[in-house]
Design a protein around this nucleic acid. Structure first.
Lengths: 182, 182
DNA sequence: CACTAAAAGCTATTGGTTTGCGTTTAGCCA
DNA sequence: TGGCTAAACGCAAACCAATAGCTTTTAGTG
């Protein structure tokens, strides 16, 4: 993988852009490697060599989209910060596009590197919230505890229990980990 | 879908058997629809029409394999029952074949029906354990609470955090939900 | 400025996937 | 029991995604 500005970087960028555009235009089902390659202005063999197959390419694009673009907002207390973050997290992840990205990220991921990256994103956001609360002098749970008690249940239900998720569920999970830290 | 003994049932059975045999013989990577169809004694078009593609077929087979074959053993107390079940659950699901089945089950599952079935299997097992404990007069948590506090963290880590799972983790999760029920 | 290795373009070929049509089978009602 | 209907399957041709071999371009280096 060359430095930004090199040909490799240009190809990667144009291919990723092609995936995003074509997904928006005609849906995920209609996507095919030759189609993406044509839109990106490269040959299919280039895509196959760099990504292996369509799933791995979609996984790469999905991880990019799941990267949070900013730190959680400071609302003055651990409870308020964590509740707001959890509600937004559930809202984004449980939406149809969010679910599609999660599936794509998990699917074309032979070694689990992309899935690990997604988990790291959530852990980083939680770290920010917890560190801020600790700076205020509040007692804070471990990041791992929050992952187990909030992130994991949300993701589990998104993946295995289609339907029946709302902001209230996220609030209850946060209340549970703050009021009864295991 | 016809009753057992009908042609549809015979075809489904022979195709599923072919998938299991060929997976064991030459690995999941080598599987193709024409290969499975030939082993099953049907034509590829039959498989494509019934299952859509290889992923959906593998998803069906994976769900079958994830079905528990017996109720959890009675060890005399809720804590012992739940701990033993969680340890076995983690052990089976975190193993390479278990992870492969989970991935397959999630993968070819457009409407989430197969994933929901997997979740239902775990909930049923937990229900048995909790009902038995309630029959003894023990105080028991909700099934949903156990799913959130034990099943979800295990599955999340299997899917998003490759590596670093052991029986001790399952024991700590069970202890957490029994000693500090949210 | 030449040199080397990695990456992309090009093309032929393979084989997985789709489709249309005829045939069989299972369920159903008289 | 016997015909009727619709769903499921077999068959075969056509399509197109996927792969591989080879050439050409490009980026980095002495």
């Amino acid at each position: 993988m060359a430095r930004p500005g090199g040909r490799s970087a240009r190809v990667q960028e144009s291919v990723h852009t092609a995936v995003r555009e074509l997904t928006a235009e005609m849906g995920r089902e209609a996507l095919t490697v030759p189609l993406v390659a044509a839109r990106a202005g490269v040959t299919p063999s280039t895509v196959y060599r760099r990504w292996g197959d369509l799933q791995e390419l979609l996984s790469d694009v999905a991880v990019e989209r799941l990267r949070p673009d900013s730190d959680p907002e400071d609302r003055g207390s651990l409870r308020a910060d964590l509740t707001a973050w959890a509600e937004q997290f559930l809202d984004e992840m449980a939406s149809p596009p969010g679910r599609a990205y999660i599936r794509d990220a998990l699917l074309g991921d032979p070694d689990g590197a992309n899935a690990g990256q997604c988990s790291a994103y959530a852990a980083e956001q939680i770290d920010v919230v917890l560190a801020r609360a600790a700076g205020r002098g509040e007692a804070v749970p471990d990041t791992e505890t929050v992952v187990d008690r909030v992130v994991a249940p949300v993701m589990y239900r998104i993946l295995f229990r289609p339907g029946g998720l709302d902001a209230g569920y996220a609030r209850r999970l946060v209340a549970g980990v703050l009021d009864a830290p295991g």
